[in-house]
Design a protein around this nucleic acid. Structure first.
Ligand SMILES: [Mn+2]
Ligand SMILES: [Mn+2]
Ligand SMILES: [Zn+2]
Ligand SMILES: [Zn+2]
Lengths: 151, 151
DNA sequence: TTTAGAATTAGAATGATTCTAATTGCATTA
DNA sequence: TAATGCAATTAGAATCATTCTAATTCTAAA
């Protein structure tokens, strides 16, 4: 590469600016880190607006556009997951273990449920030979323990 | 019930105006029947716009509002299912057998896949004791047979 | 310190769906 | 059959979540 060629896109060096895990290639700016931290310390699958509210306690001037922007970058990098349970707002999840979502139709809460160790889901459906599976989205709807107890 | 009390909601009588199956309580107007018939003869999980296009060949003056309206009534009555695979447009399905959806990320096609006879999904996830399951939405994403064959 | 690219922002635009208000259709009652 | 009243249908407006735009600010390499 000669001197007049356009400079390669800036690649920040500090290790603390990346999540080495996952070999992801997002630059972890303060906002992205805050959005990630909010999500990583939540188990309730917040929406973009929920996340905006929570991040605002640390960064009062962050905008909704930035929250969406951060969520998109983090999702693309594989650091978080976008979860679509119903029409309307997406929810987000920082749990990268294989899991499914339980949605209580009474109180609206969403929680993670993990599969039994021997679970191999693909073998249960008669997919045409030659089909390749890259991902499964499993949502279980019903009534949670607490709501069931309250009758 | 005395004469001055408001009349009970009109309940059409003709058997041909209902789908006796499912004990459903929708009045099957011509539009609703057409929307239902379009869906019942489709296996591709059309969107509301797709359905509008297809119904228009028989009823050129039907409106998008009516299509949405019909879809909502048919869904509420349990005659069809709304399917939410990604953000954006909902899709609809008239297959009432228990099944999951396979979505090809290459060509975008959506197809039904049926579970093996002995499949009891709830037992595979560690749901808290007391949880009640009413419904499961399972979407499998990947590459279909045809797209896999084309490399 | 300079500077180019990336991040951030407010607000506009978009797309899918739902709502509104007016009109039309239709089944029951008179 | 005619009158009545609710339900269905409609066009277009409104809403909601998200994405886009264009301007500004930040950051890291040189
Ligand atoms: Mn989760
Ligand atoms: Mn289906
Ligand atoms: Zn609950
Ligand atoms: Zn395909």
């Amino acid at each position: 590469m000669n001197a007049s060629a356009p400079r390669a896109p800036a690649k920040p060096t500090g290790l603390d600016c990346r999540l080495a895990v996952l070999g992801s290639d997002v630059r972890l700016t303060p906002h992205r880190r805050e959005v990630f931290d909010v999500l990583a310390s939540s188990t309730d699958h917040p929406t973009a607006y929920d996340i905006l509210d929570r991040v605002k306690s640390r960064s009062p001037h962050i905008s909704l556009a930035t929250v969406y922007n951060c969520l998109e970058h983090l999702t693309t990098a594989g650091l978080i997951k976008q979860v679509q349970l119903e029409r309307g707002q997406s929810r987000y999840c920082a749990n990268l273990h294989e899991h499914v979502h339980f949605h209580c139709e009474t109180c609206g809460k969403v929680s993670d449920a993990h599969p039994a160790a021997d679970f191999d889901p693909a073998k249960f459906w008669n997919l045409p030979k030659g089909t390749k599976v890259t991902r499964m989205d499993i949502a279980i709807h019903g009534t949670c323990e607490a709501c069931t107890a309250k009758h």
